[in-house]
Design a protein around this nucleic acid. Structure first.
Length: 758
DNA sequence: ACAATGGGT
């Protein structure tokens, strides 16, 4: 089989997410000119050696010695398993610690556990031994090795965890919940007892829970109330290679926490320190990034675990696919008509593509001869309800082929039973920051090609894969191209720009001071689980706090409190789904007018923010009087998305809790006098402001870009001297979304802006 | 003159 060559991308996100902005748990802070104390985890120092193994990365049959441990990853070639024979065969290690099966289903489950690569040979013993010996262990496990489900159980079944909880962090919600369900079954205990999970708005665990799967964002939140994470005796950071800001932040904090806790343990005998339980850290990664994590933790031991149980056959499309949705559809039918039973998983970049493919698939499947099995199409993406996402795990009905259309939500750590074929469009979406200096100054969400490790992860979801990306681009050419680009744009500068920009925003909001130290205001802001500009707006709505904490960069406070209103508006803005729905079925002209009329009904002359407030107030009126049915009808009639409102309500409850903790009155209301609402929003959105230009467009106050008001805004046809907006979206032009008119005077008074204009 | 949204709290 030929070795497919895959494009190596410069990932802007890696620069943005570089490990440089981290604040240590001890309050240390970022200095742009200082080198970080710890080894840089970002890709800036990407060694040449990494590229070479990657070329072999997609070969389907990795041969790796089971349980083979290497200190500090010195011999990289061994990882490609050149010709090392596998030493399977000795199925030791399952004797004494295995639970007694209590049913035939459980017997089967335990047999499956024993068949996992990680359970074979001496792997389990070696693993437990190493983790016992070392404070930090880096585990490089290939897809399908079983590390995510088994390692926590091994830790539990040995005495490593003591009486504490084992936390296993995941980058995705569905992964955390479905893993907990799976491992619960393997432990033969009800979900939420011995094995549980915690994701936002949904948790199932008790104080007795020993293994807790959770999203990394969740544990980062817990860090604020429990800075040493004393609840946990072992923290397993899974999918560490995903490298988001959160995982980097978590790893940086864990290093500090471990130093404190384990030092206290050493000093215990001398009676110096309080009794702190020591912390074990296990970092699990599916890619060769393991070396970086090892270096970060003072050359922690790296353990390699062999991968998948069944070889994956990868088919590439013969040529580059431009219309990848169409290509995915044609590939699906090739599989459906020619191939034996087995469910299909299709990876697509976003909701829009998923919906469009769903439409065409369901159209064509109804026209198939009845001799074919029927097709059950199941979409899966984060902004869909958890219940709908959970449907993909249901068993496939008889004489049916399940076809799952997923974003990268399904990329890691989930196993969908029955999936035998994966069709990968090779695309994903990612937020990228477009630096001010290159005409931007805002985030973009663009479709791009996936990375090599993503491709491997996706392939790992099944036994067979059809990949629609083109393998024809010569690898060497791309490296050259990337180097040129890096040179042209001055890579070092680029890597720092977003950081500077983020710091500037925080400074503008008063969250950090000139030395980049978190201010008391910033500390309060961080407690709210919303974007900084929104938490700043909430705090501005309470007269007492903003006057007491106001620094020189903050204008005088509004006289009247309006926290109640701000909580409503910011929770709706934070919701992941849109408040107003467009019914874009067949009648395009009439539907757009009906959406418009729905908005006009609640439209507030000042713009979208108070329109949101009007809508929620109207909805609350209806729900307090009417039945559930009437409420639904009302939403339908006014093109209001009830899911956005229910999600906003849950977010609002969280925000209310934070307010109470801070001693703010969440009921503080300005009633019908809505002036203070916009004034408060202005505090947070000061960087998101623009002035009217003679030609009717707007120009950023804090950037050079010309922007237009988004056609979905109530302000679309209005010409006002100045606006604030929630965000910019970049499509053919730069559009401002969530727009309100604001008095020009507010900004003239703002020191940060007047300074700039002077 | 025309609307593009991955993942996480």
């Amino acid at each position: 089989m030929s070795v497919p060559q895959k494009r190596k991308h410069i990932r802007t996100a890696d620069f943005r997410h570089g490990a440089k902005l981290h604040k240590g748990a001890n309050g240390s802070h970022y200095h742009p000119h200082k080198k970080p104390r710890y080894v840089d985890l970002s890709d800036d120092d990407l060694p040449q050696s990494r590229k070479k193994p990657e070329m072999n990365g997609t070969t389907s049959h990795h041969k790796m010695v089971n349980g083979h441990t290497l200190k500090n990853a010195k011999s990289k070639h061994e990882r490609n398993g050149q010709a090392s024979p596998s030493v399977n065969g000795i199925s030791a290690g399952e004797g004494s610690t295995t639970k007694k099966p209590n049913s035939s289903a459980n017997t089967q489950l335990q047999e499956q556990r024993r068949q996992l690569p990680i359970a074979k040979g001496m792997c389990r013993e070696a693993l437990v031994e190493e983790i016992k010996k070392n404070d930090v262990t880096v585990l490089l496990g290939e897809t399908g090795s079983g590390k995510t489900t088994q390692v926590p159980q091994y830790l539990l079944e040995s005495d490593i965890a003591g009486t504490g909880t084992i936390a296993v962090t995941q980058p995705r919600r569905v992964a955390a919940t479905s893993l907990a369900a799976r491992v619960s079954k393997e432990q033969a205990t009800p979900l939420g007892t011995r094995v549980g999970y915690a994701v936002r708005f949904d948790e199932k665990y008790t104080l007795q829970t020993r293994i807790k799967y959770m999203t990394d964002g969740m544990i980062v939140r817990e860090l604020m109330s429990d800075p040493l994470l004393l609840k946990y005796s072992v923290i397993v950071v899974d999918e560490a290679h995903e490298r988001t800001l959160r995982t980097d932040l978590l790893l940086a904090n864990l290093k500090t926490i471990q130093r404190k806790r384990n030092a206290a343990e050493d000093a215990k005998g001398k009676g110096k320190a309080d009794k702190l339980n020591p912390l074990k850290i296990v970092v699990m990664s599916a890619t060769l990034d393991a070396e970086k994590f090892s270096r970060f933790f003072h050359n922690a031991k790296i353990i390699y675990v062999k991968g998948r149980q069944h070889p994956v056959t990868i088919y590439h499309s013969a040529e580059s696919q431009i219309d990848y949705v169409d290509a995915a559809m044609r590939t699906f039918f090739q599989i459906h008509i020619d191939q034996p039973p087995g469910d299909v998983l299709i990876f697509l970049p976003g909701q829009e593509d998923i919906e469009s493919l769903q439409k065409s698939l369901s159209f064509f499947t109804t026209h198939l001869p009845t001799t074919n099995p029927s097709v059950l199409i199941l979409p899966m993406y984060a902004s869909q309800s958890p219940t709908s996402n959970a449907k993909v795990f249901d068993p496939t009905p008889p004489n049916t082929r399940k076809c799952i259309l997923a974003t990268n939500i399904a990329e890691t750590s989930i196993t969908i039973p029955g999936v035998k074929y994966v069709i990968d469009t090779g695309k994903c979406k990612e937020k990228q920051y477009l630096a001010r200096d290159s005409g931007g100054g805002f985030d973009t969400l663009l479709t791009r090609d996936i990375t090599k490790s993503s491709a491997m992860q996706r392939a790992g979801r099944a036994g067979r894969e059809v990949r629609l990306s083109s393998p024809l681009i010569p690898f060497s050419l791309l490296i050259k191209h990337d180097t040129q680009r890096a040179k042209a744009e001055n890579i070092n500068l680029i890597s720092h720009l977003p950081v500077y920009s983020a710091l500037k925003t925080l400074w503008l909001l008063g969250a950090i001071d000139k030395d980049q130290k978190l201010t008391p205001l910033g500390r309060q802001m961080a407690l709210f689980p919303v974007e900084p500009h929104l938490s700043r707006s909430i705090l501005a709505s309470s007269p007492t706090t903003s006057s007491s904490s106001s620094s020189s960069s903050v204008p005088p406070t509004s006289s009247q409190g309006c926290t109640k209103e701000l909580l409503t508006i910011t929770s709706v803005i934070s919701s992941s789904s849109k408040l107003f729905l467009d019914i874009s079925t067949s009648t395009s002209t009439s539907s757009s007018s009906s959406t418009a009329s729905a908005r006009i009904k609640f439209k507030h002359p000042s713009g979208d923010h108070l329109t949101i407030l009007n809508t929620v107030r109207a909805y609350d009126d209806i729900s307090s009087q009417g039945s559930k049915h009437e409420r639904k009808e009302w939403c339908k009639k006014h093109c209001v998305n009830e899911r956005a409102l229910t999600e906003a309500k849950k977010i609002r409850e969280q925000l209310v809790d934070v307010c109470r903790k801070l001693g703010l009155d969440p009921e503080l209301s300005c009633g019908e006098n809505e002036g203070p609402v916009l004034a408060s929003l202005g505090y947070g959105l000061v960087g998101n402001s623009a002035f009217l230009q003679p030609d009717g467009s707007y120009k950023q106050t804090m950037g050079h870009s010309i922007i237009k008001i988004h056609p979905g805004s109530t302000m679309m046809n209005e010409k006002v001297p100045a606006i604030i907006y929630d965000e910019l979206v970049y499509t053919n032009q730069i559009y401002a979304r969530g727009v309100s008119a604001i008095g020009k005077n507010f900004f003239v008074k703002h020191p940060a802006l007047s300074q700039r204009q002077a």
